[in-house]
Amino acid sequence: MITGFALVCLNVLDLDEAKRFYVDVLGFEVGIDSEMDGFRWLTVHPPGRPGTPMMLVVPEPPVVEEPIAGQLRSLVARGYLGLGALETDDCRATYEELKARGVEFIEEPEERFYGIDAAFRDPFGNHWRLTQPRTLDEIRTTAT
């Protein structure tokens, strides 16, 4: 039985810039930042939640061979590899906080059937949702 996610990988174009954005701007914490076998392992996680790591990976050899690596880098830069949603308890307040830190939002917070939601891109083009989710019971009530 699958019990959860052990690791999520996110393609980025520069590990140092990614670390700065995800740690200094978004407030994630570093889990691992270590060189092993010629490869830099860099994971970040939400504050106080080391069991939810996200590995930041540059799509390049030896991890991904060319020409696929170049195609992936192009897709990242164009925003086609959106990963999903980051959860917050207060979407509007987090939106204002992150906007003040320089995060470029492409959608302001808006009420949706599943909660309050906004959208931004990281410095590489990855598309993220910032979501204050409703409970499943709230969603079911709203949908009927």
Rank of each mutant, 00 (worst) to 15 (best):
F113S: 10
V30R: 01
F39P: 04
G27T: 05
P109Y: 09
V76G: 04
A69G: 10
G79M: 05
A6F: 08
V30T: 15
R134W: 05
L130D: 07
L42F: 04
A118Y: 03
A93H: 02
R73G: 08
R112S: 11
F105T: 14
P123F: 06
I106W: 08
L7E: 14
S34G: 01
G79A: 06
F113R: 12
V64C: 12
P50K: 13
T142R: 14
V103A: 12
Y80N: 13
A93R: 09
C9K: 14
P47M: 05
I116P: 04
P67I: 08
A6Q: 13
D24I: 03
P133C: 04
E60L: 09
R140W: 11
T94M: 12
L81G: 03
L56W: 06
A69S: 15
G48S: 11
L136S: 13
G84L: 10
V25T: 14
R101E: 10
R49G: 05
T135F: 02
T141Q: 12
P67F: 07
F5N: 09
M36R: 15
V30S: 02
Y80G: 12
R121S: 11
V57I: 15
T135I: 06
T141M: 02
S34P: 00
V63A: 15
L81S: 07
P50T: 13
E35H: 06
